[in-house]
């Protein structure tokens, strides 16, 4: 029997954009800088805008358009003191996060668009995190079995980890990275996020036995029979650097 839905308290960490200059130009500038610096890390990342340090904010629809343009998902605002701004935020369909009164707010206000799911999860503490020095791992789809010929596995919005083999005639695809703890004898395509919009992200593929039909990393592909001979049946790491496919043997089974 399915367990009943629950209303629970959860502690989540969000990326927060702390405004010191509320002009749209200044907001866009920081979004451009950060998305260029950490391309895949922020893709579809939930975002809270902290406005404690500014007097007023531009039209919320304009802010929303900007965050969408750079592939953030705006979920709400924090540091809001003025009631008129609070009203504008609620009218635009967003929520206001306040560390002290977050519990009440989260239960009383409309839930934010992004986390709204079957189970309503309330946000009680908003922790503003520093952007990490290196991009962290995205969510990962985990597959504990080998694929069969004709099978296709796509980790949409995620990286893919396969503990098993990818045989001839099968394919694995991921918006981010692919790690295969087994044979790669089929096709592997990583870094599909943003490809359709011409915004390739950095990605890589690793496997422990390399003999693919085709490898595509961030839109750059190579035929399975065009790698140097010494790479076959080795543990190999393939990545894309300046639109060039780079590959290296992780350890040599032959030695």
């Amino acid at each position: 029997m399915t367990a009943p839905n629950e209303l629970k308290t959860q502690t989540l960490a969000f990326v927060a954009l702390v405004l010191h200059d509320s002009s749209l130009e200044a907001i866009e500038k920081i979004l451009i800088a950060k998305t260029n610096e950490y391309k895949s890390y922020f893709y579809n990342s939930p975002l809270i805008i902290n406005i404690a340090d500014v007097d007023n904010i531009p039209d919320i629809k304009d802010i929303e358009a900007l965050t969408k343009k750079y592939n953030f998902v705006l979920v709400g605002f924090s540091g809001v003191t003025r009631n008129d701004i609070k009203g504008r935020i609620f009218n635009a369909g967003y929520t206001v996060f306040n560390a002290a009164a977050a519990k009440d707010l989260a239960v009383n206000q409309q839930p934010a668009p992004a986390p709204a799911q079957e189970t309503v999860k309330t946000v009680t503490v908003v922790k503003e995190v520093e952007v990490p020095a290196a991009p962290a791992q995205e969510n990962t789809m985990y597959c504990a079995t080998s694929l069969h010929s004709g099978e296709s596995k796509y980790a949409k919005g995620q990286s893919l980890l396969i503990i098993g083999d990818v045989p001839r005639g099968s394919e694995v695809k991921a918006d981010y990275n692919i790690q295969i703890e087994g044979k790669l004898y089929g096709r592997a395509c990583s870094g599909l996020a943003g490809l359709a919009e011409g915004k390739a992200i950095e990605s890589h593929i690793t496997c422990t036995d390399f003999d693919p039909e085709l490898v595509s990393v961030s839109g750059v592909y190579k035929y399975g029979d065009s790698f140097p001979e010494e790479y076959y049946h080795q543990a190999v790491h393939v990545r894309c650097e300046n639109d060039q496919m780079k590959y290296e043997i992780l350890n040599s089974k032959k030695n």
Partner: peptide, 11 residues
């Protein structure tokens, strides 16, 4: 593709 030996060149 296998019989023709081109399975690693199918894009």
């Amino acid at each position: 593709d296998l019989i023709m030996g081109c399975e690693k060149r199918v894009v």
